[in-house]
Design a protein around this nucleic acid. Sequence first.
DNA 1: CGGTATCCCTAGAGATACTG
DNA 2: CAGTATCTCTAGGGATACCG
Lengths: 123, 123
Amino acid sequence: MREPLDPDMFDPVCPSDLTPIRFGDKWYGMIVRCLEHGPRRFSELRVPLRGISAKVLTRTLRALERDGMVVRTEHPGPVRQVEYELTPLGRSLLEPIAAACAWAEEHWEELLDAREAAVGHPR
Amino acid sequence: MREPLDPDMFDPVCPSDLTPIRFGDKWYGMIVRCLEHGPRRFSELRVPLRGISAKVLTRTLRALERDGMVVRTEHPGPVRQVEYELTPLGRSLLEPIAAACAWAEEHWEELLDAREAAVGHPR
DNA sequence: CGGTATCCCTAGAGATACTG
DNA sequence: CAGTATCTCTAGGGATACCG
């Protein structure tokens, strides 16, 4: 629950950008997955979301808040600490996300093969 | 299997644009759903996909072809007739699409409520 | 640490007009 | 009927720099 996020949880070599299934914008779904096992801090999230800029991460987190997927909590103290956590609604999104991941895992190869084959006979 | 597509199958009043789940681009998933019950002609597809321009429909269909989701068949004859049909791969996409639809139907209200509430306290 | 503010740049979407 | 060809416009995404 509190072990650090795997920096490679979204392998850049196998970019999920290529799936035809998207949740919200580019990062929306990935953030939901990052929060699956408990609340995370802003900078914790930046680890697996390689290369995301602060601005884009903020914007996406705000969108998740507006949609009622995530709650933001600022913990008082000498050092600033903000945590993001899934709401029940956000948690419910994990289901269709899992369905999408299952589909991708099963049909990934087919999709890539089709795309590769299409390079030969473009329309 | 061959009855015409319902012009209101994607109710513009309840726009699926608002779901956080998207398949491919804006129209990709909707086209797959239109082809669920058998092949359809170009202009048949334009009925439920209200307001889609020929250019965008063509582009999306080409993307579906490239991804191996759809096959395009030109039937010879005096009048031109082109049909688009799902491949097994395209058909397999119906599963996660159904999961997404089920989620949306169940959590739609919550999502809208959250968005409405957010109007009051914007961050 | 957890953000804003600013600027840029491209891909997506669309309107419109034309064609085999 | 089933598309192309052009042009336009905007939103998404990102880089960089700065702030409480």
